[in-house]
Simulated assay, not measured.
Amino acid sequence: MIVRKRPTFLGLFFILQGSVIQIIWPQILLVFLIGIGVIAGHDYFPSYVTGLDPSPFALIGIALSIFLSFRNGACYDRWWEARRHWGVMIQSCRDIQRQTCHLPDNDDRRALFHALIRFGHLAEGQLRGRNPYWETDAALAEAEQAIGRMERAGHLTHVEALVLHESIARIAASILACERLANTPVPFAYSLLLHRTAYIYCIILPFGFVDTLGAMAPFVAALVAYAFFGLDALAEELEQPFSDRPNALPLSAYATAIEIALRRALGETELPEMPATVRYVLR
Rank of each mutant, 00 (worst) to 15 (best):
A138F: 04
D95I: 13
F119T: 01
W134T: 08
D107P: 07
D107G: 06
Y133T: 10
G120R: 01
Q126N: 11
Q126G: 05
H114N: 12
I90V: 01
R130S: 04
L112W: 08
R118F: 08
D95P: 15
R110M: 15
A115N: 02
R130H: 03
S92I: 02
A123V: 01
G125K: 01
R128K: 08
R118D: 03
E124R: 00
R128A: 12
G129A: 01
N106V: 08
R110T: 14
R118N: 10
T100Q: 02
G125Y: 05
I90Q: 01
H102I: 06
H114K: 14
T100A: 07
Q99H: 15
Q91R: 06
I90D: 00
P132G: 03
A115R: 08
F113I: 08
H114R: 13
R98G: 11
R128Q: 03
R110P: 13
R130N: 08
R109W: 08
P104S: 14
A138P: 01
D107K: 09
A111P: 09
E135Q: 05
R110V: 13
W134A: 14
R128P: 04
L112C: 06
D137I: 05
H102N: 13
A123Y: 00
C101Q: 14
I96H: 01
I90E: 01
E135P: 07
L103R: 07
D95R: 13
C101E: 15
A139E: 00
A123R: 01
H114T: 14
P104H: 07
Y133R: 15
R110Y: 15
L116F: 10
N131H: 08
L127F: 03
D137P: 10
R130C: 12
I117V: 08
E124F: 03
A139T: 04
L122I: 04
D105M: 14
N106H: 12
L122W: 05
A115V: 13
Y133G: 13
A123G: 00
P104N: 14
R98S: 12
H102P: 06
D107C: 15
D105I: 12
I117D: 00
A123P: 03
W134N: 12
H121F: 05
E135Y: 15
P132M: 06
T136K: 07
D105W: 13
A115L: 10
L103W: 05
R109Q: 15
Q97R: 15
L112K: 10
R94L: 03
E124V: 01
G120V: 02
D95S: 09
Y133A: 09
D105L: 10
R94G: 05
F113Q: 00
S92T: 07
Q99C: 11
A138R: 03
Q99A: 15
G125C: 03
R94M: 09
G125Q: 00
